[in-house]
């Protein structure tokens, strides 16, 4: 079982949702790591949850990307560690350079909170083994800045090298380039995505479409 830690920056607000989803699949609560900590030794998977780190006041994720713990995350990533960033976590990963591109304001300039559907581009990664390739699943989204952008060469590279993790399957509401909802690092050990699989892991909350992502990680 992957030893898992969830990063907590001031202003993060989906850490509880994420911890519940992780615990449900892993049978074990993740460690919560305060942003001033720098020792991530012993951890296999670092999760950066959603929210508004530091109020997202300069740019979403910009200030969190400069925090002490993110230096440690870079080291963790460099030695092949796993990283999952969701929503603000994805923004922090792009701001810190661990994933390419950037998340701009939604094309319609409004916050978008609704269920979206994602298509699984590949199921041979540690994050997606419990999905089928091409499977379309539902996930809530809740963001003001989810409009993925990168220069055309980067987009071509992401597509060419199989680094697109998920695409918006029905409607590309936030205007993301090539409908990209989530991407991998070249070694497929870092995943960033905008929607929230962690908020759909319980039939009571409307479904379990997000659960296979956590089951995949639990099986790793």
């Amino acid at each position: 079982m992957l030893a898992t830690g969830i990063l907590l920056f001031p202003g993060i607000n989906r850490e509880r949702d994420m911890a519940i989803a992780v615990e449900q699949s892993f049978g074990r609560a993740p460690r919560v790591i305060w942003h001033k900590e720098t020792d991530l030794s012993g951890l296999d998977l670092i999760i950066i949850p959603g929210g508004f780190s530091f109020g997202d006041y300069l740019r979403c994720g910009a200030m969190a990307a400069q925090s002490p713990v993110m230096q440690a995350v870079k080291t963790h990533a460099a030695r092949g560690g796993y990283v999952l960033g969701v929503c603000n976590g994805f923004q922090i990963l792009t701001e810190s350079g661990l994933l390419p591109g950037a998340l701009l304001r939604n094309a319609g300039l409004r916050f978008l909170s609704m269920d979206t559907t994602l298509s699984v581009e590949r199921n041979d990664t540690i994050f997606t083994s419990h999905y089928q390739k091409g499977q379309v699943f539902r996930a809530p989204m809740a963001h003001g800045d989810g409009n993925y952008t990168a220069d055309p060469a980067t987009l071509d590279r992401l597509e060419g090298e199989g680094l697109v993790a998920f695409r918006y399957a029905d409607e590309n509401r936030n205007g993301s380039a090539r409908a990209i909802a989530g991407i991998y690092s070249p070694n497929h050990r870092i995943l960033g995505l905008m929607p929230h699989p962690e908020d759909l892991v319980d039939p009571l909350m409307g479904g379990t479409d997000g659960k296979p992502l956590f089951d995949s990680l639990a099986a790793a």
Binding site: A62, M63, T149
Partner: peptide, 9 residues
């Protein structure tokens, strides 16, 4: 370069 601007965009 370090914080105020995101040089990607």
């Amino acid at each position: 370069q370090k914080l105020l601007a995101n040089m990607v965009i």
